[in-house]
Write a protein that binds this DNA or RNA. Structure first.
Lengths: 165, 165
DNA sequence: TTGCAGTGGTTACAATTGAAACCAATTTTA
DNA sequence: TAAAATTGGTTTCAATTGTAACCACTGCAA
């Protein structure tokens, strides 16, 4: 009398939380799958970590930012930015120059090389996004857009109300 | 349509990737906000990490699983499960018993205490989920459900086609 | 049997991450 | 102008996580 248990053929009912339908869980799985796939793609080609690429992505759009401004933009933390910046400097993907008006502040930009890499990664990333989006109808895409905004606001409200920390 | 967004007041146009509209990025931010909020809630009350709670969540629904079966269910990796299991054992939140039929295999279950904690966390987690969902209409909820499934399949396909690794 | 490939699970070690302390430049206050 | 407080950014140290090696057991094959 073997008590063979396989998840699939013994759906024991204890009526608890159904993780597989639980939105936070599904979001987390989806987000990780997507990010890892993309990170893998540019990571192997250009030796970039996710935070490093994120910094490049912002600098590519908004030149002349300081580390603090990057923090603001990305919601990443100081330390992560600092580390990303230092590896990007040693890769020569970005440049750093002192702000003469405030010698603590350092102005960051994509370097020549950085812009070139950026120019290659952008379509690559967009390719993944398009592929993802292509599984949705135009209507669904539009719906998703609004839904994410609403969820984002709600989750943000938790933090604001002090439900977090 | 495209009114220039500015970080501060220098809306320099380089027309690159608009991270703030980039689906993978938005998913990642949303998912982190949500998971962190919930983890914070049960973490402070019950000293549980996310992987540990995830293990409890599965065991609460499917008793008598082995570590390998947990891996299957959660898509977490072996080692993460092993660690979560060992802290849960030392918390007395789960029990472990040898399978006499196969002495490598160890059958896991929520303990008395574990079930009690589980019983408290489930409504708490569902409370967050409900709050999140309440920002959507019934229709949007339904749409989201389908959309996530589609995106998930697509992202999974990348892995299957070897686009990752 | 023995021999060896495969499985369940843990351990060891390296890389990543986060919190807090820290240094240096600047602004504020008095 | 001299503290004191603030801000930009880095470093340090501990906790978390991932990869690979590992041990113990099982199942199959000769």
């Amino acid at each position: 009398m073997t008590s063979d248990k396989s998840v699939t053929d013994s759906p024991v009912r204890t009526d608890g939380l159904h993780l597989e339908n639980f939105l936070p869980y599904r979001l987390s799985v989806l987000s990780n799958r997507v990010s890892n796939a993309i990170a893998q793609a540019y990571g192997t080609r250009f030796r970039l970590t996710i935070p490093a690429w994120r910094v490049m992505a912002i600098l590519g759009r908004f030149p002349d930012l300081s580390a603090a401004e990057l923090v603001e933009q990305t919601a990443m933390d100081k330390v992560a930015i600092s580390r990303a910046v230092s590896t990007l400097l040693s890769n020569d993907y970005i440049t750093r120059s002192e702000d003469p008006a405030d010698r603590r502040r350092q102005v960051l930009n994509l370097s020549q090389l950085g812009r070139q890499v950026y120019g290659q990664i952008v379509p690559l990333a967009q390719g993944y996004e398009n592929d993802l989006m292509s599984s949705l109808s135009a209507e669904e895409r539009h719906q998703l857009d609004g839904i994410i905004d609403k969820l984002m606001d709600r989750a943000q409200a938790w933090a604001d109300r002090g439900l977090i920390d």
